[in-house]
Write a protein that binds this DNA or RNA. Structure first.
Length: 259
DNA sequence: ATGTCGTTTCTAAAACGA
């Protein structure tokens, strides 16, 4: 079984690369982030994806964010956004950053954690809130099914997950509070499957600017967290760097995990 | 060189987000 996650930075702009990925890599499940398409036109993309034998569920508001789950097998009990009615601190009230579905008795979550912008901004407060809210939803669904959480966390868990930690001191993606929020989720019984990479180099995102990809100036911010039972079944983990190359790439590469 | 993309909008250049 192959499960992948990919921040595509606009599905409209990336549809040909996504088709290429489905055709060549044949993942059983693909979680997408930053689809930037609205629910109204999702059917166009569902039709394209169906021609490759996949089913899809989208959660999007059009201009920004947007997440999706694509799978060969049926998706049931799909939930878009957080459960319940959270007290939102006021930023990005109608954003679309979470979709979950049950596939083959696994509970799959596609997440797009807020960027946070600057550590002294409301957006950073919202990022911390969002991570805490995600933890609550994961805890509320724990036990019944094995859980796998994939997506763009906008957090580099360790210093070795950025190309030059001195360039990121005091910035989002590496700050202690967001790393603590991620650690709190892991403390609920989740394993960071990409954490098997001990050294610099296994990055998942590279800035479009300054030739960052060719210099390997990147970060590992696209993560896959699973319950420890699932982690024991893990085979190969790979960053599909070829999809960061070539014509019109996203600034993120897909991460693929085999079980 | 905030040097690239992708989105949107007063459909051409700019604002905004990442």
């Amino acid at each position: 079984m192959k499960i992948a996650t990919w921040n595509v930075n606009s599905l409209r702009a990336r549809i040909e690369r996504v088709q290429e990925f489905l055709e060549i890599k044949e993942p059983d499940i693909l979680c997408l982030q930053e689809t930037k398409i609205s629910s109204d036109i999702d059917q166009d993309f569902i039709d394209i994806i169906q021609t490759y034998g996949y089913k899809a569920n989208f959660h999007g508001n059009g201009q920004w964010n947007g997440v999706a789950i694509i799978s060969k097998n049926e998706q049931t009990n799909v939930i878009k956004g957080f459960s319940g009615d959270p007290k939102n601190p006021g930023v990005d009230r109608n954003d679309c950053r979470l979709i979950r579905a049950t596939i083959d008795n696994f509970r799959i979550y596609s997440v797009y954690v807020p960027n946070g912008r600057e550590v002294d901004s409301d957006h950073y407060v919202f990022k911390l809130y969002w991570l805490d809210r995600l933890k609550a939803d994961l805890e509320s669904e724990a036990g019944a099914q094995q859980q796998i959480v994939l997506g763009d966390f906008n957090i580099a868990p360790r210093d070795s997950d950025v190309f030059d930690i001195s360039a990121f001191r005091g910035m989002t993606h590496v700050s202690q509070k967001e790393r603590d929020a991620l650690a709190a989720i892991e403390a609920c019984g989740f394993v960071d499957l990409g954490g098997i990479w001990e050294s610099n180099g296994s990055f998942t995102w590279w800035d479009y600017r300054q030739g960052a990809f060719h210099k390997n100036h990147g970060m590992r911010i696209d993560l896959c967290l699973s319950t420890s039972v699932v982690a024991k079944l893990m085979g190969a983990v790979s960053v599909e760097r070829d999809f960061r190359k070539g014509s019109k790439p996203s600034d993120h590469a897909p991460v693929m995990i085999e079980f």
